[in-house]
Design a protein around this nucleic acid. Structure first.
Length: 843
RNA sequence: GCCCGGGUGGCGGAAUGGCAGACGCGGAGGUCUCAAAAACCUUUGGGGGAAACCCCGUGUGGGUUCGACUCCCACCCCGGGCACCA
């Protein structure tokens, strides 16, 4: 009789596994490979419950796959660059590297204490030169392919983080993803990766990701934001309508409404605005709109219930489709970032234009009418404009029939309509427009004005311009003598930035911006395949063996950011010739958040439940099993202490029954019991093996554990129902061994102790095969089938497993409660679902 | 507004068109004990009934089906993403 003592056995086995190299893995082509990966952590400090959940899910999946005989890669590493390290260094008067590496040590110790089955030899830390060197190398490959651009544009600036941000890092109501400060727009010259060149493929390939959750794919599709339409050329003209040689292009999804364009709009930031109004009487009023827009944040400027403001520029453009002269206005609701920053206003077909037209008294000529619009009687078939206003309360933007639209009158209009294609074709023939696809996705701004990041390998040469650092000079090493506590960045270190041009040898300045941390996380999963390679980021053959990641597990908060960037990197590396696959992550599991009373746990709120405290009390195995049991992995979970005690009880119950069975003397040879309890136990064993495996494969880890509880209950039932002297110890020992094997992925330490010490079985439980069973055991001689009368269960019938349909019906109709419910009625039909139920229809 | 996901006991949750509520927490009662803890046993959706058993019940309203938590249509509510996107 031994006691379950997790504190002794857990650390004992952790040390043992490490010295045995139990989780060390190498490529073995003789077995099917499986790459199980959890999103790597940021070394923020102690681990929290979210980590426990994320990495436990992955560990169960990896261990189960290993027991199924697969060649499993299950690595870990740290996403180690980033601003929190700088902030922490300032606070503690230290260096970001010191803080980062110390936290990595702490987290690594916690992960080991949780018993995760990582191959530690493949550990990646993105702030190690051995890693970031290859991030720079990949950047140069992007550059060679024309995917790197340095350009000036209005960018997001976080005043608190003192750096620019990518669009994807501006979240919610225009706040910084990390510090939640409101982001400002600034016109700056920055480095971009041209992710937009892959917009169409990133969108199209979402359809191939059948192993991804719908909502993640929907979020990415939303973010990429494809819309089909046309570019249309408007020609600037003078007040008399005499055209100039100056054209302004607009993007529209509704070229079919072109005849309804009654004014033309420019964004306040549009470069033409100042030029058009300079020195005219309109300059002042236009400037007031421009200034007002500039002062407001993008949050203040958005919101559709806001009154739209604008000013006439005094200039006109010619509508290409009818030669009409329309006034050019500046309007604060036109965005420079989307389309061309210029819009053809069709107030009858667009609510915003409608509001604007009403406010400033501009005409609203109807061009697309609903079938039931009374105006249709007046305007049907009318090609010329006879009406320039409507009595509608708002714009009509649905499908309808064209009126007052020249030769297109009578066609069906709407998005992607007949008229849209016809008008676009007409424009294209005359060189006045073309079909276009517009994306919401912007290029990825990757430069950061921060120290603790991967230096951008570029040199500014007064003679040669921007020059890439040659490959053989990589890495551009991040110097360690920068004092962030004094607010220093690389730009404060002449010994870093003073250099010579790699091309002409003249004096030059090294780039002092670093790369967005998301560049590191966009390819780290490839590095794990070949983590110590010092001649390349990875060997394509090794990546070819392991990639793509079969199962990726992480938080939903990366639905756009990390997952989109990684997909982009993979596609570029494929085009570079380093990968032969299109997508990095075949299956994705987005695990839910761990909350406390509905709120996210955070140190600042002081509502953190520390995993370490739970381990100290119940051990890592109980914590692992409990966090999995609380809810399905993809659902948010509200932490509660109540059930943890129950999980502790379950582990003790399982321990006790295995321990008891291990001490039974062997039953007489050949004396295999075949009574009902023995059959029931055999069936329970087989059913549990089947259920547990199937549940793990579909990530129902909560029901997998529930199934193990049922199994333990079944073993107790047998021990209770059969007198001790008659119990079949062979059968029980088999059950105890199978139970231990099934527990192994979930509670690896307890299972190991039971296997090696209590049951005295040879070798590690984690080197055993997943248990199998004889399906024949699942069949029974007799079945109990529910009998429904008109859809309601009224009785149960016991029949032989091989009974004929006729015999089943006969027996069912003879049941007392069935007779009572069909009395006085006619049996119309009897449905027998084999092995399931009997359904009697009466009327 | 558009796009996703969700709505089941006191609670976490289960049920891949077939007995709704598995498993666990919590509750009630009991066994063991001087007592407690631990362990074990019984019970636990609501209502009626002594019981057999009956009625109601998976956000709402319809539909398909012998049979619907599950499939279809419409709607309500909650969570999330996008959004003055032309």
């Amino acid at each position: 009789m031994t006691k379950y003592d997790p504190h002794v056995i857990e650390t004992k086995w952790q040390e043992s596994w490490e010295s045995e190299g139990l989780y060390h893995v190498f490529e073995d082509p003789s077995r099917p490979k499986k790459y199980v990966l959890e999103m790597f952590p940021y070394p923020s400090g102690d681990i929290h419950m979210g980590h426990v959940r994320n990495y436990t899910i992955g560990d169960v999946v990896a261990r189960h796959a290993t027991m199924l005989g697969m060649n499993v890669l299950h690595p870990i590493g740290w996403d180690a660059f980033g601003l929190p390290a700088e902030n922490a260094a300032i606070k503690s008067n230290s260096h970001p590297a010191k803080w980062t590496y110390a936290n990595i040590e702490t987290q690594a110790a916690s992960f080991k204490r949780m018993g995760f089955s990582y191959d530690w030899d493949r550990t990646v830390r993105t702030c190690d030169p051995e890693f970031y060197r290859w991030g720079q190398w990949i950047f140069l490959k992007f550059w060679e392919r024309g995917l790197v651009e340095r350009k000036s544009s209005p960018v997001n600036w976080c005043p608190s983080c003192k750096t620019v941000l990518a669009n994807e890092q501006v979240v919610g109501d225009g706040v910084c993803w990390r510090c939640k400060s409101t982001v400002e727009k600034r016109e700056l010259e920055q480095w971009f990766l041209k992710i937009t060149e892959y917009a169409q493929e990133l969108l199209d390939d979402l359809d191939t990701l059948t192993g991804w959750p719908e909502r993640v794919k929907a979020m990415q599709a939303n973010w990429i934001g494809r819309s089909e339409g046309a570019e249309v050329e408007f020609t600037l003209c003078d007040e008399a309508g005499e055209p100039s040689d100056r054209r302004i292009t607009v993007f529209t999804t509704r070229p079919d409404t072109l005849f309804g364009c009654s004014f033309f709009l420019l964004a306040p930031e549009h470069p033409l605005v100042a030029e058009l109004t300079a020195g005219t009487e309109f300059d002042e009023s236009v400037r007031s709109i421009v200034d007002m827009a500039a002062k407001e944040t993008s949050v203040e400027r958005s919101g559709s219930d806001r009154t739209k403001r604008g000013a006439f520029t005094g200039r006109y453009v010619v509508n290409p489709v009818n030669g009409e002269k329309v006034p050019v206005w500046v309007a604060d609701y036109v965005l420079m970032e989307y389309g061309t920053g210029a819009v053809m206003a069709v107030p009858s077909g667009d609510q915003r234009d409608f509001d604007f037209a009403r406010f400033y008294g501009l005409p609203i000529p109807p061009v697309v009418l609903s079938e039931d619009d009374p105006l249709l009687a007046e305007l049907a078939g009318v090609r010329e404009r006879v009406r320039a206003d409507v009595t509608w309360p708002g714009a009509f933007d649905a499908e309808g029939v064209l009126v007052q639209s020249g030769e297109f009158t009578g066609m069906r209009g709407g998005k992607k309509s007949e008229a849209m294609h016809a008008v676009t074709a007409w424009l294209a023939e005359r060189g006045l427009g073309r079909e276009t696809i517009n994306f919401r996705l912007r290029d990825w701004l990757i430069s950061r004005q921060r120290y603790w990041g991967n230096p951008i390998p570029a040199v500014h040469c007064p003679a040669c311009g921007l020059v890439p650092v040659p490959e053989d000079q990589l890495p551009v090493v991040l110097p360690m003598d920068v004092d962030v506590t004094r607010g220093e960045t690389l730009a404060d270190h002449p010994e870093f930035y003073e250099t010579t041009c790699p091309r002409c040898g003249g004096a030059a300045r090294r780039e002092t911006d670093t790369m967005d941390t998301f560049t590191c996380s966009s390819w780290y999963y490839l590095r794990y395949c070949d983590a110590t390679n010092d001649g390349a980021p990875f060997d394509p053959a090794k990546a070819g063996h392991w990639m793509p990641v079969d199962q990726y597990i992480g938080g939903i908060e990366h639905a756009i950011l990390h997952l989109l960037y990684s997909r982009f990197y993979t596609k570029v590396l494929r085009d570079v010739g380093l990968c032969d696959f299109d997508e990095p992550f075949t299956n994705l599991l987005t695990q839910g958040m761990v909350k406390l009373d509905g709120a996210t746990m955070s140190k600042s709120k002081g509502n953190v439940v520390a995993p370490e405290d739970m381990i100290a009390r119940y051990g890592a195995d109980a914590l692992r099993a409990y966090i999995l049991f609380m809810a399905p992995p993809d659902k948010d979970l509200d932490w509660s202490f109540d059930g943890l005690e129950g999980m502790w009880r379950f582990l003790n119950r399982a321990w006790r029954v295995v321990d008891d069975i291990s001490q039974m003397s062997a039953s007489a040879p050949g004396a295999t019991a075949d009574d009902a309890p023995a059959k029931a136990l055999r069936r329970a064993t087989a059913a549990s093996i089947a259920k547990c495996g199937a549940d793990v494969e579909r990530f129902q880890l909560n029901t997998a554990i529930a199934g193990l509880m049922e199994y333990v209950n079944a073993v107790y039932d047998y021990r209770r129902d059969v007198p001790e002297a008659s119990q079949d110890s062979t059968l029980l020992r088999r059950a105890a061994c199978d139970l231990t094997l099934l527990l192994a992925p979930f509670t690896p330490h307890m299972a190991e102790e039971l296997w090696r010490v209590v049951l005295c079985e040879p070798g590690s439980v984690h080197r055993q095969s997943w248990p199998t069973f004889d399906p024949a055991v699942l069949f029974t001689d007799e079945l109990e089938l529910p009998v429904q009368v008109n859809g309601k269960v009224r009785d149960r019938v016991v029949v032989a497993a091989d009974a004929s349909e006729g015999a089943i019906i006969e027996a069912a109709l003879a049941l007392p409660n069935v007779i009572a419910h069909i009395a006085g009625m006619t049996v119309r039909k009897v449905v027998v679902v084999p092995g399931r139920l009997v359904s009697v229809v009466v009327g």
